[in-house]
């Protein structure tokens, strides 16, 4: 599980990691294009929601990049971001349910990501499990 790639870093994109990076890639494209469009065309309508979507987009794009890059530093950075992502989904999800009036339009993380088949809340959990397992197999 820890064969180094061409530049000598342990690969993270293999086996289940391939599925994971694909889903992160899809979420990155979705969240980036959505927030760019909304901020460019109708930012005043729901500034908070669109800003939070942009934050989510940056997090997804960064995790996708670190997974592709591989290596121990990237693995740790991705682990931190997955934790941040999970906290973000839970916070924003609870926030949108507790105070819907603050959100005239939905964010990527509204209602725990229900609009995205709950993938936003499942992805960080899967990511953390995978990244922790990658370290164990790398040490073994």
């Amino acid at each position: 599980m820890s064969e180094p790639n061409a530049v000598g870093r342990a690969r993270l994109v293999q086996g289940p990691g391939m599925l994971l990076v694909w889903l992160y890639g899809v979420m990155s494209v979705g969240a980036v294009s959505r927030s760019v469009y909304q901020i460019a065309t109708e930012y005043d309508r729901a500034p908070l929601a669109y800003t939070l979507s942009a934050v989510a987009a940056v997090v997804y794009a960064f995790i996708t990049y670190t997974l592709f890059r591989g290596g121990e530093t990237a693995r740790k950075a991705a682990l931190v971001c997955c934790a941040a992502e999970l906290v973000g989904v839970l916070t924003v999800g609870t926030w949108t349910m507790a105070d819907p009036s603050a959100f005239p339009d939905a964010t990527v993380w509204s209602d725990y990501g229900l609009g995205y088949l709950l993938i936003p809340v499942l992805l960080p959990v899967t990511g953390i499990v995978w990244l922790r397992r990658s370290r164990r197999t790398a040490q073994a």
Binding site: G15, P16, G17, M18
Partner: peptide, 16 residues
Amino acid sequence: MSLTERSRWGSATVAA
């Protein structure tokens, strides 16, 4: 992506 991952997980990626 499934071409570079020649295991069941390549199939899972295409299914997803």
